[in-house]
Structure formats: structure tokens, C-alpha cells
């Protein structure tokens, strides 16, 4: 599509408009680069640029990034999913329990099932019953956390299966953490699906103008149900990765992640209003949040100060991308 050049009109796109359009997209990458350079300079003695530290950032942010990829679809379709964090916790608990009682394959299967199940319910309530996704997933958030506390008696459930721990988050292939591969697989799939696939086009059209999408023959309810399903499946996988990385299942895993996930997507240029979004931006957004956390920790800031600084940086980045 981009390789077509037509000169139908005498005046071409004004350079100003082009800069204004690309600024929104570019500001996240610029911000990322600027922050990276700042941290590299100010933290060169604290080992910010150490390969281990950089891989640590990936370890800490890959799970958020995976959920942010799916969240990009949800936001692009004009919906929202607040249940991802608590669903990840539930998925970690369910996986750990089934793994303990029925073995590796059953555990993995159970983890995938719980995510899909939650997604089907969320999608059904949003599209068939017509409850706004904000409310559906707000309720689901409580239900997931409650369920995982209930079935685990708020205790941590250990995972002793080393294969599982290796595959789902704990292991390294060569110098690279396996989480990096998970993130790459989900990221590339998501990017292709949103950018080059008919499904992605339909998602963007649904979020951009639902009525026009319907008039164009798109079944917008099916599209919305599918993005809700995708988001929940990604959250289910995230919970399994938490379980593998920390070799246990615990209801607190993923607590508050929904905010980081939404922040990552928004930082990456995906609007809450629907109609546009990029998967690459969301991943960069997630890594940027991780990098900020890491940099501020190395700077010796306390967790309380980190929260304040992180909030300010996110607001600043989004405000800059708005300004045109």
C-alpha cells in the first residue's frame, strides 16, 4: 500500500502536516532514545549498560509487553480490559495447582484454558449482553483475584517441575532469557496481525467508527469478542510465565499490571478512543516503563519515589505525543 505513489493533485502533502502526523508516532521512540542515553551517561558507574542489566530489564518487562500486545488490539477496537493483571494471578495459581496434581501437560493446558474461558465470558458479556467492557472487566478483576485467593487459600503454590520453569520464563537460551523469545513471538505475531492481516484492519475500523464498519459488512460484535478473548489469553499466558519465572503460583502475581499494560500501550501511541495503535509502539512502551524502573532503582530512589517519578514521566510522554 505504501509503495503506491499517485500524483492526483498538484499540491503534495504539506511537510508540516507530515511532521505533525509522524510526531505522534515518533515521540515514543525519541523519548525512549533520550531516556536510554540519559541513563547510560548518568548510570555508567552503576552498570546500566551491562548486558546483564539490560537482559534484566527484558526479564522484568517481557510479561507486561506480552499483555500490552493484546491490549493494543483491545484499545484499537475501542474497548478496554482491566482484568488482565488479576487474571494473570489466577492463571498462575491454576497452572501451579494442576501441574502439582496432574503433571506438566495438564498444567499447561489448564493455564491456557483459564485464560480462554475468561476471555469468552468477557467477550460474551460485552458484545451479547452489551455491558461496557470497562464494567465487565472491572467485575472480572475482582472475581479472578477472589477465586485465586480462595482456591489457593492465599498461599503460594510451589512449582517443582524444572521443564516447566525452564520453558515458561525461568530459562535462558545461550545468554538470552527465554522470556525474550516469548515476547518476540507474541510481538511479531501481533504486529503482523494488526498491520498486515484482514483481522487487524477490521479491528481498527471497528474502533475507528463502529457504525461505518458495520455498514461495510464487518461483524463488529465478533471482532470485539475476539479482541477480548485475545487479551484474556495473553493474560493467561502472562500468568503462566510468572509461575515459571518465580517457580510458584500466587494470587498476587500480576497485581496492578493492568495499569502498566494500559500505560505501555498508551505510551506507544495507541489511543483510548480506538481506531489506531501499533504493536511495536506498545512493546517499546513496556520496555520504556521497565527501563525507567530499572534506571530509577540504580539511581537509588526508593519505591515510593519511583512511583512518583514514573507517573510524571508517563504523563509527560503522553502529553508530548498529544501536542501538535
Amino acid at each position: 500500500m505504501s509503495n503506491v505513489t499517485l500524483s492526483k493533485s498538484q499540491n503534495s502533502v504539506s511537510p508540516l502536516a507530515f511532521v505533525r502526523e509522524s510526531w505522534r508516532q515518533a515521540v515514543i521512540y525519541l523519548g525512549f532514545a533520550v531516556l536510554f542515553i540519559i541513563f547510560s551517561i548518568t548510570l555508567r558507574d552503576q552498570g546500566f549498560l551491562d548486558i546483564n542489566n539490560l537482559l534484566n530489564i527484558v526479564r522484568q518487562t517481557a510479561i507486561i509487553a506480552i499483555m500490552a500486545v493484546a491490549m493494543t488490539f483491545v484499545l484499537a477496537a475501542g474497548e478496554i480490559d482491566l482484568s488482565v493483571g488479576s487474571l494473570a494471578g489466577l492463571s498462575s495459581v491454576v497452572t501451579a495447582m494442576v501441574l502439582r496434581d496432574y503433571g506438566l501437560v495438564a498444567g499447561i493446558f489448564a493455564g491456557l484454558c483459564i485464560g480462554s474461558l475468561a476471555g469468552v465470558v468477557n467477550g460474551f458479556l460485552t458484545t451479547k449482553i452489551g455491558i461496557p467492557s470497562f464494567l465487565v472487566t472491572l467485575a472480572a478483576m475482582g472475581i479472578c483475584t477472589g477465586t485465586s485467593m480462595w482456591i489457593s487459600h492465599t498461599a503460594s503454590i510451589p512449582i517443582l517441575n524444572q521443564t516447566y520453569a525452564f520453558l515458561f520464563g525461568g530459562g535462558d537460551i545461550g545468554p538470552f532469557p527465554i522470556l525474550l523469545f516469548w515476547m518476540a513471538i507474541i510481538g511479531v505475531t501481533g504486529h503482523v496481525a494488526l498491520k498486515h492481516n484482514t483481522f487487524g484492519r477490521r479491528v481498527l475500523a471497528t474502533g475507528g467508527n463502529e457504525t461505518a464498519a458495520q455498514y461495510s459488512g464487518i461483524n463488529t460484535k465478533v471482532i470485539k469478542a475476539r479482541v477480548m478473548l485475545m487479551s484474556s489469553m495473553a493474560a493467561g499466558l502472562a500468568g503462566m510465565l510468572y509461575a515459571g519465572r518465580l517457580q510458584s503460583g500466587r494470587f498476587q502475581f500480576g497485581e496492578g499490571d493492568e495499569m502498566s499494560v494500559i500505560a505501555a500501550a498508551v505510551l506507544g501511541g495507541t489511543g483510548l478512543a480506538g481506531g489506531h495503535g501499533t504493536v511495536v509502539g506498545s512493546i517499546i512502551g513496556a520496555i520504556m516503563i521497565g527501563m525507567i524502573n530499572n534506571g530509577l532503582t540504580l539511581h537509588g530512589l526508593e519505591y515510593s519515589q519511583q512511583l512518583v517519578a514514573r507517573g510524571a514521566i508517563i504523563v509527560l510522554a503522553v502529553a508530548l505525543s498529544k501536542k501538535n
Binding site: 503506491v4 484492519r201 481498527l204 475500523a205 475507528g208 467508527n209 455498514y215 461495510s216 464487518i218
Partner: peptide, 21 residues
């Protein structure tokens, strides 16, 4: 504007919206 177009999308995207397959 309400029923015909996704105005923030490109001309090309709008034109092929009904025939994506």
C-alpha cells in the same frame, strides 16, 4: 461521516474495507 467512512483512516483503507478478503 457517520455511516460511510472511518475518517481517521486512509483513503485506501476505507476503499478496501468491505472487500478485505
Amino acid at each position: 461521516l457517520r455511516q460511510g467512512l472511518v475518517v481517521q483512516h486512509s483513503v485506501a483503507r476505507n476503499i478496501c474495507l468491505s472487500v478485505l478478503d
